[in-house]
């Protein structure tokens, strides 16, 4: 379904003001994501930012294999689907050839931190002017809940049925801290989206990252602590609590690296 027309709200009476609506850059289709999954929310935030910056015609997204491989069905922008782990290589070429466009990748933890770690680190080390949206939910979601490099110590998954043994598999990889070491990274932050405050902070991070991309500051990476109620075997509410009580212990929230030059991005209200 293609909708380039202004968003209409059939259910809203004419004399009502619409205070909240689907971003125009987000397709009006049902998403395949599980109930309570953070992907749909982050998709919406990304497309809100594209709307607000007025860059729908200048933005190219890259979504590799993983739950978000269907992102091009939902985001009403030009997109490329990449092979598992290779989004940063694909995005590198797009950005090098079209330096005036905005280019982002949207990658999960298995994709970015395991199979795609080489492409990720080298793209960041080269300081590619791209935004990496890194969705960390500590499991392989699409293949139904196997252990990822970011799986918490002791966390049970289908391939760590007795809990992740860090002596056997090492500790969760702190990607944001790792890539902040590289001179090519400009803005590195970790955010959550399981609270209104977290959602607003994440949106602000996205706005800043696009602004720094415009300033050619280098690679921006926003790690978003996602969730996976289905594979965590939790209700969405339990998954939200798990983020606050467990995930943030291994993955502390906040800015890890900011560029010297200030962001000119607007700050959302009520932050």
């Amino acid at each position: 379904m293609q909708t380039d027309e202004p968003v209409t709200h059939a259910c809203v009476p004419d004399d009502y003001d619409v205070a909240y609506h689907r971003p125009a850059a987000l397709m009006d289709v049902n998403m395949h994501y599980c109930p309570g999954c953070a992907h749909s929310l982050v998709h919406k935030l990304l497309m809100e930012v594209v709307d607000e910056l007025g860059i729908q015609d200048q933005t190219i997204g890259v979504a590799p294999v993983g739950c978000s491989v269907f992102a091009y069905e939902y985001m009403n922008i030009d997109m490329q689907e990449a092979a598992h782990g290779r989004a940063c290589a694909v995005a590198t070429a797009i950005k090098r050839l079209m330096p005036d466009k905005f280019v982002f990748t949207y990658q999960g933890d298995g994709d970015l931190a395991a199979i795609g770690i080489a492409e990720t680190l080298h793209a960041i080390n080269r300081g590619e002017n791209i935004l990496i949206v890194f969705m960390n939910n500590a499991v392989y979601g699409m293949t139904s809940g196997q252990m990822a490099p970011t799986t918490l110590p002791g966390m049970k998954t289908t391939t760590s049925p007795f809990g992740r043994d860090t002596k056997f598999y090492g500790a969760p990889m702190k990607i944001a801290e790792l890539v902040a070491q590289l001179p090519g990274s400009s803005y590195v932050t970790r955010q959550v989206v399981n609270s209104p405050h977290g959602v607003r902070k994440t949106k602000q991070a996205l706005l800043k990252a696009f602004d720094w991309q415009k300033q050619n500051a280098g690679t921006c990476l926003i790690e978003i602590i996602g969730n996976c109620p289905s594979n965590w075997r939790m209700t969405p509410l339990e998954a939200s609590r798990f983020i606050d009580e467990e995930m943030v212990k291994s993955f502390p929230v906040g800015d890890i690296k900011t560029p010297d030059q200030p962001s000119l991005a607007p700050t959302p209200e009520n932050l």
Binding site: A93, R96, L97, A118
Partner: peptide, 21 residues
């Protein structure tokens, strides 16, 4: 544009990105 990639895996995927654009 000429770029020495970190591996052949990266270079073929860079070709993908460029060709797709």
């Amino acid at each position: 544009i000429v770029l020495q990639a970190e591996s052949e895996v990266a270079s073929i995927n860079m070709v993908y990105g460029a060709a797709g654009a």
